[in-house]
Write a protein that binds this DNA or RNA. Structure first.
Lengths: 203, 203
DNA sequence: TAGGATACCTACCCATGAGTATGATAGACC
DNA sequence: GGTCTATCATACTCATGGGTAGGTATCCTA
């Protein structure tokens, strides 16, 4: 039921999906849907919760691990990425508070905030235990979550990479950053266009 | 006009904003709005284009610069971040193809793809000229764009940081990555919880 | 000062889609 | 064989909101 809703929201967006569409996918009629749920927004909410629970679970899991915070963070990010690439990713990421009643909206916000705080905490711990380079935990958490959330916007099942592979690739990028490291083969090219800067950088 | 629409979409989302709302903000009535635009979706489209043009401009600008590709990329990312933090950020980022007619949807997709390709190209060039650490250009571009796009979801004008400041913070994060670098003071703590790993990492 | 263009209004139409009233079928249990 | 409950359908109601028909006031120009 909620899975059918998730798949349909995925395809056409929340507002462009009618309950008749969802009913049609299940090969029943609209009143049957209302036999199981009380409203369309409840459907969206359930989809959201289903997806988000996986991430919350991962946050709880890593508490028990005796690992540097960066590795615990990576584990959470991997689960996060897979969750966003799942059929509930769309709902998790795109469930706007505008689409929900104030009560449910508060609930959604609370869950999102909890995850955000977990990530920030892991970053802070990582800075303390030396496994993460000092940075602004808030901005960094936003950057990480944003990159992963965005997966829901471009990823579709038929893609060549699995959710896990994407998550892994992202973790690698986050860890390393773009700047070349000493001791890594980087083609050692003599920076072709980099002779000088005749114009100032905009901004 | 399109600015008013953008602000209203920002507040309540596209589908939850009626043309009466937009008209009310301008202190006119709905037919007046239709005097200037032909449809609601055209309004969304115009907002989108307005925001995206800034980024396209930045992509063109940096072509002229004689700088390592990483610096040119950073310049684009800064403009990108500021654009997303602007009043048109919401429309740029959230304009779903589901909400637009096939023709406009194609147009939107083409513009988005153009920017995506520009970023990938800069990454490839950076890897070649040695200013960017070897990585998967496609995934990296997705990660960068995702992190920046996500700004539109959480940033609101009254925030303490300006769009430029956020963009700058993000560029720093992307460049450095999370891993601590040799020679940087990182509290040099003896990785407190990191004695051993009694449990396997999930996944 | 007539004619037209610009900018705006009041009052409507109508398709869509969320949600419901009411009743049918089919198995379970007595 | 009756009735009770779970499951589902037909056939509605009704608010919302995109879009339009047709008219008016202002102002510019000839």
């Amino acid at each position: 039921m909620i899975r059918a809703a998730a798949l349909e929201f995925n395809r056409k967006g929340y507002h462009n999906t009618s309950l008749d569409d969802i009913a049609a996918r299940l090969e029943v009629t609209k009143p049957t849907v209302y036999y199981y749920v009380t409203s369309k927004e409840q459907l969206l909410f359930e989809c959201f919760v289903t997806g988000v629970e996986r991430i919350r679970g991962a946050c709880r899991e890593v508490r028990r691990l005796e690992l540097p915070a960066r590795e615990r963070l990576n584990a959470v990010l991997r689960q996060y990425g897979e969750a966003v690439a799942s059929e509930f990713g769309w709902c998790m990421v795109r469930a706007e508070q505008d689409d929900l009643s104030p009560a449910m909206s508060r609930h959604v916000k609370a869950l999102k905030s909890e995850i955000d705080q977990s990530i920030r905490r892991l970053i802070r711990e990582g800075i303390q235990d030396g496994s993460i380079h000092p940075c602004d935990p808030k901005m960094t958490a936003f950057a990480l979550a944003g990159a992963l959330n965005w997966i829901a916007h471009w990823y579709r099942e038929d893609q060549s990479m699995s959710g896990a592979q994407i998550a892994e690739a992202f973790v690698t990028i986050f860890e390393a950053g773009l700047r070349p490291r000493a001791g890594t083969p980087t083609e050692a090219a003599p920076r072709r266009r980099a002779r000088r800067a005749p114009t100032a950088l905009p901004r």
